[in-house]
Nucleic acid binder design. Structure first.
Lengths: 239, 239
DNA sequence: TAAGTAAGATGCGACTCGCATATAAGGTAG
DNA sequence: CTACCTTATATGCGAGTCGCATCTTACTTA
């Protein structure tokens, strides 16, 4: 979708803020939500961890900028991506007035392997949500070596992403972006539980998912388990 | 809330897009949603109706820019205001690359009187939503003299505002911004019905609103009606 | 062949919601 | 003063949803 402003002056007559895009790239690892972070190579907040981001070029749309940064900085191929919020307070960067449009994307965890191998300045950090339900607020982040210091107010941006994700989980197919093409109902429930930070009732979850009509059975069953194999489902593409 | 980008180059080394803020100022008149529009005084789309908007200054936050435009261009005092979405496609304005952050606000209808009197280039146009439920899409707009031609793709922006408004109506106190300080349950239901474009069941609506705990009775009753007077309620401020 | 484990199904009580209907409280007309 | 009109407010009931306990199924392992 594209909008057009109501302009009544020559745009060139104003000083312009810089515009950047930051990405919240999330996944689920070991039943916990994680986010891709980059170590900042320069001041300010040198050495702290930050969301991957970059400037919007004059000849690319915001969505294109988000996809370019996804590809070049986060080393990811295309993914489900969605605009989150735009941050425009003053003094967000000591060097210049910067407005940042944030996007968030969801990917299966195996999609992060190449990115993490390509650079030691990338990490997948676990998100700990210290609030419940619709409360909102900043989140905390940890990796293998303990709590992670986030640059700027990226904890608040991550909190907004978690809030949006939780809100959309039940009335959109957003959660399936974290799963491979075929999956079991148990795997789907694990994704929901990780995002919501709560355990769900199995029969009720199963009923709800099947009644939504989003998924269809493949007729194939999981293999390898030492117990009754679960049926594999896929997201329907024919609506 | 304020975010800070991940910057790894000097911001000054890039060409910068212009950034504007557009406002979707909505109300309810005669049980229909309406929006404040300005007639465009210049090309492009001269003479068409557009959302009030303007450039973001280098020394004001996005939220401050929205409030300034609300005051100066729409002639409104402060109001409940909320960021909607940011539009950043190319060629949105033939004169320059422009990124527009949209906000929407809700006001009781009497708050528009001064603004409409102050300028013949302002109008309150009725919004006709041609879709139901969560579908989304552009809306149509009419005023006393029939269908109104909207500038650019402002019909799509308005559609997004209606979608957001409908979505938040049931789990936030957003709808109360359209009512005076005290109101009857019937008036509250009229607001909900106008926004949702559907009639609601009266006992169920009343039960739901009272159970949410958002409102409290004032002990005062409506006067003037030639039938049983309704109790006046107010939005609780003590949470 | 029995035991163990998790998938998948079923039945039930609590709760919500729409709807029909009943009662209450004013004004108005005679 | 009283019957009547209109809308506010309350209540009771059936359908549908959801959580939960429990039962059955299917596969591996000992």
């Amino acid at each position: 979708m594209a909008g057009v402003p109501s302009i009544d002056h020559d745009p060139a007559s104003y000083d312009r803020p810089a515009v950047t895009v930051d990405l919240v790239l999330m996944s689920i690892v070991d039943r916990a939500p994680v986010v891709l972070l980059m170590r900042r190579p320069i001041e300010p907040d040198l050495g702290k961890w930050a969301l991957p981001g970059g400037f919007v070029r004059i000849d690319e749309s915001l969505d294109d900028a988000a996809r370019r940064i996804l590809r070049d900085k986060a080393h990811m191929a295309d993914a489900y991506i969605e605009q989150l919020y735009t941050f425009g307070d003053l003094d967000r960067d000591p060097r210049a007035r910067v407005i940042t449009v944030t996007y968030f994307a969801l990917l299966p965890p195996d999609r992060f392997g190449d990115a993490l191998k390509s650079s030691p300045d990338l990490t997948l950090a676990e998100i700990i949500v210290p609030w419940a339900d619709e409360t909102g607020g900043p989140v905390e982040v940890t990796d293998d070596s303990g709590p992670v210091a986030l640059a700027f107010d990226h904890a608040a941006i991550l909190g907004l992403a978690m809030l949006r994700l939780r809100g959309k989980l039940n009335y959109s197919t957003i959660g399936f972006a974290l799963l491979p093409e075929t999956f079991t109902l148990r795997a789907l429930q694990d994704v929901h539980e990780a995002i919501l930070g709560a355990t769900l009732n199995k029969p009720a979850f199963r009923r709800r998912m099947l009644e939504k009509g989003w998924i269809e059975p493949t007729g194939i069953r999981e293999t390898g388990a030492s117990f009754r194999p679960a049926e594999l489902y896929r997201l329907r593409t024919d609506f």
